[in-house]
Design a protein around this nucleic acid. Structure first.
Lengths: 124, 124
DNA sequence: CGGTATCCTTAAGGATACTG
DNA sequence: CAGTATCCTTAAGGATACCG
């Protein structure tokens, strides 16, 4: 395939710092699970914990703080007793779903190719 | 924004394992730089090293091996003296450029929003 | 030129216990 | 319910030296 056949912009190496910054956020162990779980609207802390298999309380808190810091998730405290906290995607967080979906689609389409490549590589 | 307003598929939590697998590959510290540097065709080992600022010989080797294992990059040895090794993107590796570009575009469009969100969060 | 091998440091994440 | 605090383990990555 020639370069001229590619109909989308090609990442320049200078873009990488910026993209890696995003990947550092969304590429950690849990952010993607949280974003996917919040796709239908606000979810409470322990409900998130129940829906995301294997996440610890600590990592849920830390990851939510990171997403909140980057303006991707909102935290709403209802000062009742017991307290209630809703987490939700912001507009920005919601727009992130589209590029993430591009990766989901790619991953879906190429998972077998990659698996086979790994098996082949490991065999040799 | 209502869910019905979103005109792209929404990631299900079950997709996350697969996508995280891809993100583990492309989301490490150097893969993206290598992929971007190989966009115009084959590049030799030390040329890669020169073009990617800050990468160590060890990490260049390790990252290339990982990309090769997943079938995203080819390694071609010319047994001359001194030896010459060309690295290039595979077809699969090249198709990864499109979804990566979606993230580049998003990152580009949202970097200021995120920076401001961080400043605001850190101030409070 | 294109790597390995070895050692070391740091950061991510898990486990568990405690709290307003 | 929704967190902190503390301790611990592992893995990623950097520095340096050596090799075919």
């Amino acid at each position: 395939m020639a370069l001229s056949d590619i109909d989308f912009p090609i990442p320049h190496i200078d873009d990488c710092r910026m993209v890696r910054d995003i990947l550092d956020r969304v590429g950690d162990k849990w952010s993607l699970y949280i974003i996917a779980t919040l796709k239908d609207g606000p979810v409470r802390f322990n409900e998130l914990r129940r829906r995301i298999d294997g996440i610890s309380q600590r990592m849920l808190t830390l990851t939510l703080r990171g997403l909140e810091r980057d303006g991707l998730v909102t935290r709403t405290l209802f000062p009742t007793i017991p307290p209630r906290v809703d987490y939700d995607l912001t507009e920005t967080g919601r727009t992130l779903l589209a590029p993430v979906m591009a990766l989901v689609t790619w991953a879906d389409a190429n998972q077998h190719v990659i698996q086979e490549a790994r098996v082949r590589y490991d065999a040799s």
